[in-house]
Simulated assay, not measured.
Amino acid sequence: MSVDHRTARCVLCGPRQAHLPRLGGLLRRCEGCGFSWTAQEQAAEDGRYDEDYFAEGGYDDYFRAAPRRFEARRRLRWLLSTVRPTVLLEAGPAGGYFLEAAHQAGITASGIEASHTAATFARDHLHMPVRQGYFETIAPTLTADA
């Protein structure tokens, strides 16, 4: 069953508004408030979060510690130059390296990851609190400053 995103409920403003596709249908934008989100059905259908892709090494670089930790520290430095969050929620943390860097900086950090394999890696190897699922579904139940 496919969801009609033109009348789907916006997770931010709530009312049913017209939604315009963006980036070839990968994103939707609420005409009521301007919030944009991923089109879940499209992402699932095109194999982007397909566990077979992980098994075949498609996201192998997501789990390589050295380059991921380097990039995570760079992203964290940028974030801390703009805001000082105490609670951070990351959409799509992949292997969890940014969450690890944030945690080491004293930030309460968690994430929501669409891939079961990536979420499991973040939890089992880095001990980061990552929920498996879609950000649009889980995030409205959580609070964070960044």
Score class of each variant (00 low, 15 high):
residue 89 L to Q: 01
residue 95 G to C: 09
residue 98 F to Q: 03
residue 88 L to N: 02
residue 69 R to P: 05
residue 78 W to G: 00
residue 74 R to T: 10
residue 94 A to M: 07
residue 67 P to Y: 06
residue 65 A to R: 14
residue 89 L to T: 01
residue 76 L to A: 05
residue 75 R to H: 11
residue 59 Y to K: 02
residue 57 G to P: 02
residue 95 G to M: 04
residue 72 A to F: 00
residue 99 L to N: 02
residue 63 F to P: 01
residue 87 V to T: 15
residue 90 E to P: 02
residue 87 V to E: 09
residue 68 R to D: 08
residue 100 E to C: 00
residue 54 F to S: 02
residue 95 G to L: 10
residue 79 L to P: 09
residue 57 G to C: 12
residue 61 D to Y: 15
residue 89 L to S: 00
residue 57 G to T: 06
residue 101 A to T: 09
residue 53 Y to T: 09
residue 53 Y to R: 15
residue 66 A to L: 15
residue 77 R to F: 07
residue 101 A to D: 07
residue 96 G to K: 02
residue 71 E to S: 11
residue 98 F to D: 01
residue 102 A to M: 06
residue 54 F to M: 02
residue 96 G to R: 02
residue 71 E to H: 11
residue 53 Y to N: 04
residue 88 L to W: 05
residue 62 Y to T: 02
residue 94 A to L: 04
residue 81 S to T: 11
residue 60 D to F: 14
residue 91 A to N: 10
residue 96 G to L: 11
residue 88 L to P: 03
residue 80 L to I: 12
residue 79 L to I: 15
residue 73 R to Q: 15
residue 86 T to I: 05
residue 68 R to W: 06
residue 82 T to M: 12
residue 74 R to D: 08
residue 103 H to M: 12
residue 100 E to F: 00
residue 97 Y to M: 10
residue 93 P to G: 06
residue 62 Y to C: 03
residue 82 T to K: 11
residue 57 G to M: 10
residue 91 A to W: 04
residue 53 Y to D: 06
residue 76 L to Y: 02
residue 74 R to P: 01
residue 89 L to P: 00
residue 77 R to Y: 05
residue 72 A to R: 00
residue 104 Q to L: 15
residue 96 G to D: 09
residue 53 Y to P: 01
residue 77 R to G: 04
residue 58 G to T: 06
residue 94 A to C: 09
residue 81 S to F: 09
residue 68 R to I: 03
residue 69 R to C: 13
residue 82 T to N: 11
residue 68 R to Q: 15
residue 98 F to T: 02
residue 65 A to L: 07
residue 92 G to S: 11
residue 76 L to H: 01
residue 75 R to P: 00
residue 82 T to F: 08
residue 56 E to H: 06
residue 63 F to V: 08
residue 100 E to Q: 05
residue 64 R to A: 12
residue 89 L to M: 05
residue 92 G to V: 05
residue 101 A to W: 07
residue 53 Y to H: 12
residue 53 Y to S: 12
residue 92 G to I: 12
residue 57 G to I: 05
residue 71 E to P: 00
residue 79 L to Y: 09
residue 91 A to K: 11
residue 96 G to Y: 05
residue 65 A to N: 04
residue 90 E to H: 04
residue 70 F to K: 14
residue 102 A to W: 01
residue 77 R to K: 14
residue 65 A to G: 02
residue 62 Y to D: 12
residue 71 E to R: 13
residue 96 G to H: 06
residue 91 A to Y: 08
residue 70 F to E: 14
residue 72 A to C: 05
residue 57 G to K: 04
residue 60 D to K: 15
residue 100 E to Y: 00
residue 85 P to K: 06
residue 55 A to T: 06
residue 56 E to I: 01
residue 100 E to L: 12
